[in-house]
């Protein structure tokens, strides 16, 4: 009697698994189609960077990259093509993955990585937000597996399911169909000027109170990988720090010190705009305490292009 119950359960459960896999496959195709049909928004920008851009200069980094680097200014100043592949809220692990997927198709001449001073400090969000890469997993499994594997040891199993790969994407699709999010070659300007506030100082101060023990070795490895991938593909690399509204003391910031040390060792040009007197304390150039507004971004990009011309003169001649 009990054997019959086992048998019935196994057969019915088997049927259920088959039906589920078919549903996952079918609905997954629809979900993916919808995902890759986006024309604006963060996913559309990443997809464009991975699958379409042929720009000679690519910008990588978090919201500071996305909001500070004006491709049109770089194109004009360096007489080349440029795309801003910066992604808000994303950190080194994401940029490494994005870079790997892009260089599989094209070899840009120059990659500019905007450095956030706390890039190497452990951040749970940095791991959580890697889920933005899930929809690309089927196509770029080899490149993404080592990075997504840091999220969970069983990521490979989870990403076997199309539903999981496309998790949380449909509302983005609907949202950006209803309200397209315009960008200028990946750059989205911010407007308005910062209101000075006492809280800002505390916020900035708190960032530099972390120590060496807070450095995440996965992020250090990611930085080395980013550099190695560029070198392996003969891509010039420049690290840049964006201006901040308030003067910040980075002399005790373990993350920033480590980044600079790696940069020096790897012989990567480093353009440091932290505490740059042309920007610091100028509310007209900032949208908030850590983001430039459009005027500030254009001025910053122009200054950066001038710096790049100094050590990459061939860009000026193209």
């Amino acid at each position: 009697m009990i054997k019959k119950e086992y048998k019935t359960s196994v057969i019915k459960f088997g049927k259920f698994i088959v039906i589920f896999l078919i549903a996952d496959f079918t609905l997954g195709i629809i979900s993916k189609r919808l995902f890759f049909s986006q024309e604006t928004g963060k996913y559309a920008r990443s997809t464009y960077a991975i699958q379409e851009t042929d720009a000679k200069v690519l910008i990588f980094g978090s919201s500071h990259a996305h909001r500070h680097y004006v491709p049109e200014v770089i194109e004009k100043e360096l007489q080349t093509s440029c795309y801003n592949a910066g992604a808000e809220g994303q950190q080194l692990l994401y940029h490494v993955a994005l870079q790997k997927m892009i260089v599989k198709r094209i070899k840009p001449e120059l990659i500019i990585l905007n450095i956030d001073e706390d890039f190497l400090y452990h951040s749970k969000e940095a791991y959580d937000r890697l889920s933005d890469l899930h929809p690309y997993y089927s196509e770029y499994r080899d490149d993404l597996e080592p990075i997504l594997g840091l999220q969970s040891k069983l990521m490979d199993f989870k990403l076997f399911f199309n539903g999981y790969q496309a998790n949380s994407t449909i509302m983005h699709v609907i949202r950006y169909y209803a309200l397209p999010q315009l960008d200028y070659k990946g750059y989205r300007p911010l407007f308005g000027k910062v209101k000075p506030s006492n809280n800002i100082k505390e916020e900035v101060q708190s960032k530099i109170e972390k120590g060496v023990e807070d450095i995440d070795q996965n992020f250090v490895t990611a930085l080395h990988t980013f550099i190695a991938t560029a070198k392996d593909n003969n891509i010039d690399l420049v690290f840049v720090t964006s201006p901040t509204y308030l003067t910040v003391d980075h002399t005790t910031n373990a993350s920033f010190i480590r980044i600079k040390a790696i940069t020096e060792k790897e012989n990567i040009p480093f353009v440091d705009f932290f505490n740059d007197q042309q920007f610091t304390g100028k509310p007209m150039l900032f949208h908030d305490s850590s983001h430039l507004n459009d005027d500030g971004a254009k001025l910053f990009t122009k200054n950066l292009a001038d710096q790049i011309k100094k050590f990459k003169p061939h860009h000026d001649n193209n």
Partner: peptide, 23 residues
């Protein structure tokens, strides 16, 4: 119909994977 029952729950699992928060 068994097919309707099984498909209903298969779609529900898909919805969990598609809409759920996995943190």
């Amino acid at each position: 119909y068994e097919f309707v029952r099984l498909t209903g729950y298969a779609v529900l699992i898909y919805m969990i994977m598609y809409f759920g928060v996995f943190g």
